[in-house]
Amino acid sequence: MKIGVLALQGDFDAHRRRLEELGAEVVLVKKPEQLNDLDGLIIPGGESGTFLKLLGEDGFAKLRDFVLAKPTFGTCAGCILLAAEVENPKQAGLGALDITVRRNAYGRQIDSSIREGLFLNSPIEMVFIRAPKIERVGEGVEVIATEGKDESPVLVRKGKTLAATFHPELSDDPRIHQYFLELVAKL
């Protein structure tokens, strides 16, 4: 299985390590043509605004074609990119998931935290770094993991698209990447 990790900037190397541990072949994607023969793609954490600038209009259009057609998993900045609507500030989203995401919703770095949430009803560690929040979950979008007393959605899925507001690549637990690879294998 050939999985790309968007490597314009951010923690792409943490995703690469995890995917390789799980037996996937990994391509670090810096150019649109590298998207051509991938089975799936991960958009990592990083600065979502910087991603948009590095993509440019052409790169953005090609990435959108890919994520609308193929399995894609976004974490943190990647989740922001996959959303239909982005707040704080408003910015372009690829629209692969009908969700509204608020950037830096918990505050600054000092408010970053490691907490326990529920993934498919079992406890799992979640690393939140200057994390966004999913403020609206559209029709047909399934909530796969939640966190906190208010059971905030932190991992959502629609069909082949998966997005997390936290960083499973920074925890030792491989379950969420495993889940994504199973999703890629099924499609």
Partner: peptide
């Protein structure tokens, strides 16, 4: 340990930048 992971975690997000 938790605190160091959060601290280096932000640095991870800045890589390549």
């Amino acid at each position: 340990t938790t605190s160091l992971r959060l601290k280096t975690g932000l640095a991870e997000m800045l890589k390549g930048g």
